[in-house]
Design a protein around this nucleic acid. Structure first.
Length: 585
DNA sequence: TAAGTCTAA
DNA sequence: CGATTTAGACTTA
């Protein structure tokens, strides 16, 4: 690694690495496919379908229901030989666990997490809502999922386990790229323990490390703390402050409160109640629900940026390219064949995209139809009198109903594209830029929005069995990362995209980056790392995998239940008996 | 409904 | 001189 960073200027990149190969444009298809595959794999483990994706490489899972169920069947008299039931209606499917110990790492760090000797006896207490035990169960579930992900998909990942999206995400940052961390209680301050683990964990974070406190909010908070405008790096590097203000700094302010923050942060375009929201975040409180998994996105957009785009011919050409890609994405992401298989699954099995899109023998139907079309541009400001240019990143947009011919699947994509450009996009463009010429665009985006679910689709598609729908596609990439909660299970990144993420102004270097052609890394060629297949080092992985690698699931020794006739592994016998005792089928 | 703001990876 | 690509939640008018 020679200091190449995400979003680096090409001139800078060439300075630090003269041999860098710049590839213009990018193709995120393989990232998108891998992301969807892993997401669907994880989704199949969920009972309540609360599985929320953030970007390509992070997932939250709310596993409260699974954990609560397993808390009930837990035998507190024989914690070492416990059984975790992973499937809601099959008491025999699951894994053995030692519930006298947490799985993986903890925050604050306890004695050696991997040697099995760490004493977590406090986890067996019978305090209020069994928080410790629930977190412990969450840690074992996370460990199981990570192991499954590795065995079946050949991905490693990082997980954080806590009670909210906020805390699971933050604590999941700790043991990258292949570890898990549970945020230990106490979560609340007590007279006995005035500093909860949540407070001590949060207080060292820079405020912009807190999810949902982005650049704008952070600058306002800093300005309030400093009593003056917060300085930041001018020019190209967007979103970098020069001031470090921590959560602890803010919390120490005597006047800090939800109302004060509402006045400080609120304003046009900002959500109401933002003051209370940020106040909560700074105190480790986050009530946001993990959202239910969706099978179609709410919007699809395609954009490209340009050095200069100022003739109508160029604009027409670019609109054509962009809208063709958009229509293809619509067909890919919003349709399924009549046998209920998504188009991308058909592509996988047909190996022929052209055959799968539009002309497949099994005709596709829409799961959801977009109803609006939006055209966005980013004009560059005209030259000032003094020859300088006002820098602006502002986008402007116009929208119109999406004509329904775009949803006609038998029609050839090129025909749809031509018609969409001439009948919808060019009119929108003229509305956006009434001048005959003189505009000069640095970006064009075409989007479809306002999806309407198609009848026959919403009938419980959320609950549809997606297990088994996903066959191959293993071993394409390496990484993902898992995060979990008591609570909320979060799967967090650690993926290739993230490897080059910049942190605190320097680039993070992970061991496996060495396997990648160092000259081939630039922000314009994010797909390159994918091509460098990282050899999987099983031993190292297990060493990293912070604990015993006993066989899980159904072992050799089983017994047949007299009551239900099911075959159950011996270690699960106690749990199974309790299953019946609890009045299950 | 339309256009814009902010946040995220 | 340069300037990412998408997606989602939410606001005001």
């Amino acid at each position: 690694m020679q200091g190449l960073r995400k979003l680096q200027l090409i001139t800078e990149a060439k300075k630090v690495c003269p041999d860098v190969i710049i590839v213009l444009g990018e193709d995120l298809t393989r990232f998108r496919d891998a992301s969807k595959d892993l997401y669907n794999y994880l989704r199949a483990f969920s009972w309540n379908n609360k599985v929320e994706r953030l970007g390509f490489d992070e997932v939250w899972m709310d596993v409260t229901d699974i954990v609560d169920y397993n808390l009930e069947i837990l035998n507190s008299h024989d914690l070492q030989n416990s059984f975790f039931q992973i499937s809601h209606d099959d008491p025999t499917s699951g894994f053995a666990l030692d519930a006298s110990h947490i799985a993986g790492h903890a925050y604050p760090a306890t004695s050696a997490p991997t040697d099995g000797d760490a004493d977590h006896s406090d986890f067996t207490d019978s305090s209020a809502n069994h928080l410790s035990t629930r977190l412990l169960l969450g840690s074992h579930l996370a460990h199981h999922l990570r192991k499954q992900l590795h065995e079946h998909k050949n991905y490693t990942c990082t997980v954080g386990i806590s009670i909210s999206k906020l805390l699971s995400k933050l604590v999941g940052n700790i043991h990258k790229p292949n570890g898990q961390t549970t945020l230990l209680p106490p979560y609340d301050a007590t007279p006995d323990q005035p500093h909860s683990n949540v407070a001590s964990f949060l207080d060292n974070h820079d405020i912009s490390a807190i999810p949902w406190i982005g650049f704008k909010l952070a600058q306002k908070l800093r300005a309030h703390f400093l009593g003056r405008a917060a300085d930041f790096h001018d020019g190209l590097v967007y979103g970098k402050t020069k001031e470090r203000i921590t959560v602890g700094d803010m919390r120490a302010l005597p006047d800090l409160g939800p109302e004060m923050l509402e006045r400080l942060l609120g304003g046009p375009g900002l959500p109401r109640g933002i003051g209370a929201r940020v106040y909560g975040l700074l105190h480790g409180i986050d009530d946001a629900e993990v959202r239910q998994a969706r099978n179609v996105p709410r919007q699809i957009s395609i954009e490209d940026s340009y050095v200069r785009l100022d003739t109508l011919a160029e604009v027409v050409a670019e609109l054509t390219t962009l809208s063709r890609r958009l229509l293809a994405r619509m067909q890919l992401d919003l349709t399924e064949s009549h046998d209920g298989v998504d188009v991308d699954k058909r592509i996988e099995t047909n190996e022929d995209e052209a055959a799968a899109v539009g002309t497949s023998s099994m005709p596709a139907r829409w799961m959801a139809k977009p109803t609006m079309l939006r055209l966005t541009t980013r004009p560059r400001m005209p030259l000032q009198a003094d020859g300088t240019r006002v820098r602006t990143f502002k986008r402007i947009s116009r929208s119109a109903p999406l004509p329904s011919f775009t949803l006609d699947l038998p029609t050839h994509l090129d025909a749809l594209t031509t018609r969409l450009v001439s009948e919808s996009l060019l009119p929108l463009f003229r509305k956006l830029h009434p001048e005959k010429s003189g505009w000069n665009l640095s970006l064009v985006n075409v989007a479809v929005t306002e999806m309407v679910d198609c009848a026959g689709d919403e009938r419980g598609r959320a609950g549809r069995d997606i297990k088994g729908m996903f066959g191959r596609q293993d071993g394409v990439l390496r990484e993902f990362s898992v995060t979990e909660g008591e609570g909320s299970l979060e799967f967090e990144n650690g993926s290739v995209l993230k490897d080059w993420e910049e942190e605190g102004g320097r680039s993070k270097q992970l061991d496996r980056d060495r396997a990648v052609d160092q000259n081939a890394v630039s922000e314009q060629s994010v797909e390159l790392p994918l091509k460098a297949k990282i050899p999987r080092d099983e031993d190292q992985w297990h060493a990293d995998f912070d604990e015993e690698d006993e066989d899980e699931g159904v072992g050799e020794d089983t017994f047949r239940c007299g009551q239900c006739g099911r075959t159950v592994p011996l270690f699960a016998r106690d749990a199974h008996d309790r299953f019946h005792a609890d009045g299950a089928d």
